[in-house]
Design a protein around this nucleic acid. Structure first.
Length: 417
RNA sequence: GUGAGCGUAGUUCAGUCGGUAGAGCACCGGAUUGUGGUUCCGGUCGUCGCGGGUUCGAGCCCCGUCGCUCACCCCA
């Protein structure tokens, strides 16, 4: 038997109901906030990711699915969406049409990590990006929209965390201060942090090793180093969120794993997914568009871990609303033949209608109806046919009414409302 | 990449000291004529992950291998 590859998974029909509900809710909300959908290729030139995500990140160093594509050189299965959205934004000169562009996209991403709970090699993201405004109002609106999605979906046990990562003006001072602390604490740092203190000191801040946490407990806070502009930007974001009743925690150790972030960074964390606690994350990346060869345009965005969101909703047994279903129990060839047309017409009219075409006892039909979770059963046997009526049973109340065969379909639709 | 745990029916699992497999659920049928969910009765279903070794004999012990899961790391 051929099985699927490690870290990949099939999303089966029972789960898909929830996925569709999440997707529909997100689309509707994002469109109301002025976002437009964009669909992008899954494969891009490798350099797009090494330039945007950063050469020293784990993603680029060891997690990408990269292969040669003839003369074109190396191509990569995208490990995240932002780089592709930015590429497309630049390539199609979207900045020329309209100063502010809001885009969203939904699709699979690929990272070759060891799979575990909430982590797959092919995983899905709902991604939203805004280009062309540096205003803190947009930061707050983006976070407001994201939190609102979780509220609409009635997701429990999540919290919003925000931080500011500064900008090219103020971050170097902070990095200098952090670096000198790391030097002085060298003996107490884990192997990883020793390496990180060379390559990317910021990331030592969210190390979980107890000795490192202890060594860094007096680490300088980026928030104390923010320049005037960054400080007032961050203050505005916090004020706006507070005014809109969005609860959040300030987490000075929140450091996103990708190199391109500036100023506002945020995450939605959950306690329901074991070691993987981030269901969504994002932030501002004012320098990325220019770094990828576009004009100097500020931008901010986020990605939601679709699989993780679906998983915590499934744990909480959140079920999307469903429409009534009819099961048709037709006894004998003549009745089956007659009912087949009704079933088809009901489906066409938007009423989910199931019919079992095998010859069965009525009892067996009723069991089938239960299995389908039918709300109503239409019963047609020779007795009914001969007197020109069919029986229509409400499965919950067990009430049964007689419906004339003439004009049956419109009548049923009227009855179930 | 590193570590730990687990692989037995469609599924969840039991299987004692080594004696060639069992239960619940699910599925199918029945319980006097054409009415479901509960109950009762009956029935179908296995390369015990795979390969080798020890043994008269292996689901069980040993070695290898593959797969799954969780954790480290990192992130969505």
């Amino acid at each position: 038997m051929i099985q699927l590859i490690k870290g990949f998974k099939d999303i089966l029909p029972d789960e898909i109901v929830l996925w569709q509900y999440i997707e529909d809710t997100a689309r509707a909300l994002f469109e109301d906030f002025g976002f437009r959908e964009i669909r992008l290729p899954i494969v891009e030139k490798s350099e797009l990711f090494s330039k945007s995500i950063g050469d020293t990140t784990d993603i680029v160093e060891k997690e990408m699915y990269t292969f040669e594509d003839g003369k074109r050189g190396n191509v990569t299965l995208r490990p995240e969406a932002t780089a592709s959205v930015v590429r497309s934004y630049i390539q199609h000169k979207m900045y020329a049409e309209e100063p502010v562009r809001k885009l969203y996209t939904i699709g699979p991403m690929f990272r070759r990590e060891r799979p575990q709970k909430g982590r797959y090699r092919q995983f899905y993201q709902i991604d939203a990006e805004v280009f062309g405004t540096a205003s803190p109002y947009m930061d707050a609106q983006i976070i407001f929209m994201l939190v609102s999605l979780f509220n609409k979906l009635a997701v429990q046990n999540v919290s919003a965390h925000i931080n500011s990562l500064g900008c090219p003006v103020c971050r170097p001072d902070f990095q200098k201060a952090l670096f000198s602390l790391l030097e002085s604490q060298k003996d107490h740092l884990c192997e990883n942090c020793l390496r990180r203190s060379e390559k990317n000191p910021l990331r030592t801040l969210d190390c979980k090793v107890p000795s490192c946490r202890n060594a860094l407990k007096d680490a300088p806070s980026i928030l104390d180093f923010l320049c005037g502009d960054c400080q007032s930007h961050f203050n505005t974001v916090k004020d706006l969120l507070t005014r809109q009743n969005i609860p959040f925690d300030i987490d000075k150790n929140l450091v996103r794993g990708l190199d391109y972030y500036t100023r506002t960074a945020f995450e939605i964390l959950t306690t329901s997914l074991g070691a993987q606690n981030a269901v969504a994350g994002g932030g501002r990346y004012d320098g990325l568009v220019e770094a990828l060869g576009g004009p100097s345009q500020p931008a901010i965005g986020f990605a939601i871990g679709f699989d993780r969101l679906a998983e915590i909703m499934a744990q909480n047994r959140t079920l999307p609303p469903k429409n009534p279903k009819i099961y048709i129990a037709a006894l004998g060839d003549t009745c089956r033949n007659l009912a087949w047309g009704w079933a088809s017409d009901l489906c066409l009219d938007g009423v989910q209608t199931e019919m079992d075409f095998e010859e069965r006892s009525l009892k067996s039909h009723m069991k089938r109806a239960d299995k389908f979770h039918a709300d109503f059963v239409l019963i047609l046997g020779d007795n009914e046919r001969e007197n020109g009526h069919a029986l229509f049973r409400n499965m919950e109340s067990k009430e049964q009414i007689s419906v004339p065969l003439d004009d049956l379909v419109p009548q049923l639709i009227k009855i179930i409302g």
